[in-house]
């Protein structure tokens, strides 16, 4: 097959810091994050937008990084699981997953936590239906979901008692 596309240089902000990488324009952002930027917290499950293991935030919106071409990362602000804790202190959702057993094997966990954090940023006090809706794109083969659901509820409650 003829080689046509050249690698392009993409500049963006990742987890609050300037980042720049070279990639083929249609390379998956998922691969770029893991292989070029060494941010291996973002996982691959299905590679086709169904499982949410690769969830990240782009300009504040939850997206599946397996479906974002590198070119479209140009100029965006990206947050991955590595950018969720501030200094040494975990995000409320991360802490709740630890306390309430929201993670087992851990493959779905980074995406699950980002989906939950993104939900709480949009709806600080989500009802049960909103939590289910917010996590419906994230599949887990281990937990049976109840502990994940409880972790998110606990994170909401913790935020409420603080406020």
């Amino acid at each position: 097959m003829p080689e046509r596309a050249r690698k392009i240089r993409v500049s963006c902000v990742v987890n609050g810091g300037a980042a720049s990488f070279e990639a083929y324009p249609m390379a998956r952002l998922l691969d770029v994050l893991r292989e070029e930027l060494k941010l291996t917290g973002t996982k691959e499950g299905c590679g086709e937008g169904e499982c949410g293991a690769c969830s990240i935030e782009m300009d504040g919106a939850l997206v599946n990084s397996c479906l974002v071409p590198a070119l479209q990362a140009q100029g965006t602000k990206i947050r991955t699981i590595e950018g969720l804790a501030i200094g040494g202190s975990l995000h409320a959702v991360q802490q709740a997953f630890l306390t309430h057993g929201g993670a087992q094997c851990g493959i779905c966990t980074p995406g699950m936590i980002l989906a939950a954090a993104n939900l709480l940023a949009r709806y600080p006090q989500p009802d049960d239906a909103q939590i289910r809706e917010g996590l419906s794109g994230n599949l887990c083969r281990c937990t049976g979901y109840m502990k994940i659901f409880e972790s998110v509820v606990a994170a909401v409650r913790r935020a409420e008692t603080r406020a």
Partner: peptide
Amino acid sequence: LPAYEMET
């Protein structure tokens, strides 16, 4: 991948 071009 090198077979696919994309421009903005």
